[in-house]
């Protein structure tokens, strides 16, 4: 079984994001970038499926600037077999991302595509579902467990109020939630080996996908700041304030 995993290079999740003074976006100059955490979980899941003997090949793809190569090398070091960079310096919105991935699916014919449920920059949570719709494939989103058997994949999903399990005929799209697995760290020998693995490059143009944005960002602002309140000395004082001042209990 062949698995395609899509990954994105984003501002590292430990970085405190700052809005630019001219309100056009957030500061990205000299900011640490990393693989989106949900994408790391997607790579890890694919690698585990390969280790279980379920998957035979893992192809990892990323869409973005030249530096996205680093993200792809990270995925290769974690255990992916080869990589494809769809190079562009333009903003690519989820609909366009899913159209590009659809073209890659048509070329590579994977049995499963695994993606993170969302990236921590745009927080859109759209690409996996959109790709699945464009391919008319079944989808298992927000996965906390993935079991492949008999041409099917059972996906246990994190939903409001608990868990739900769906059975999907392969090929299918799976998006990862936090509890699916804990990604490993790449070992030094594997980082060295990853440098020799194949990394092909293409562009949205070569794939015939129009990536012009449909949604325009007019302004990016800091959220309204919340003022710190007061410190209370005791539980009694706290309860008194909540009853008589805030009037919430």
């Amino acid at each position: 079984m062949k698995i395609l995993v899509a990954v994105k290079r984003v501002i590292d999740y430990n970085v405190k994001v700052r809005v630019k003074a001219d309100n056009t976006g957030v500061e990205t100059a000299n900011v640490k970038m990393s693989m989106n955490p949900f994408c790391e979980i997607a790579v890890e899941e694919a690698v585990r499926l390969k280790e279980q003997g379920v998957a035979s090949e893992i192809i990892v793809a990323s869409i973005g600037p030249q530096q996205s190569q680093e993200t792809l090398r990270t995925a290769l070091a974690l255990g992916a077999d080869r990589a494809i960079l769809v190079k562009t310096d333009e903003e690519v919105q989820p609909l366009a991302v899913s159209k590009i991935l659809k073209e890659l699916v048509n070329k590579e014919s994977p049995d499963m595509v695994i993606l993170g449920k969302q990236t921590i920059d745009g927080d859109n949570n759209q690409t996996g579902q959109m790709l699945s719709a464009l391919l008319d494939w079944p989808q298992g989103t927000f996965a906390s467990k993935v079991v492949v058997e008999d041409g099917k994949v059972n996906v246990t999903r994190e939903i409001d109020g608990g868990l739900e399990t769906v059975a999907l005929q392969l090929p299918a799209v799976v998006t990862t939630d936090l509890r699916l697995n804990e990604p490993r760290f790449a070992s030094l020998p594997n980082i060295m080996k990853a440098k020799k693995k194949t990394l092909d490059e293409t562009t949205p143009d070569e794939l015939g996908v129009d990536i012009s944005p449909r949604v325009k960002t007019l302004k990016v602002e800091s959220p309204p700041a919340r003022e710190a309140g007061i410190k209370v000395e005791s539980v009694d004082e706290l309860v008194e304030k909540l009853k008589n001042e805030a009037k919430v209990i």
Partner: peptide
């Protein structure tokens, strides 16, 4: 924008060739 809406709305948008706006 609950797990219900997040799950199916991007499919609607993709089928209509629309860039959805989330949340």
């Amino acid at each position: 924008a609950t797990t219900f809406g997040k799950n199916f709305m991007p499919r609607v948008a993709a089928k209509l060739d629309v860039q959805m706006i989330s949340d």
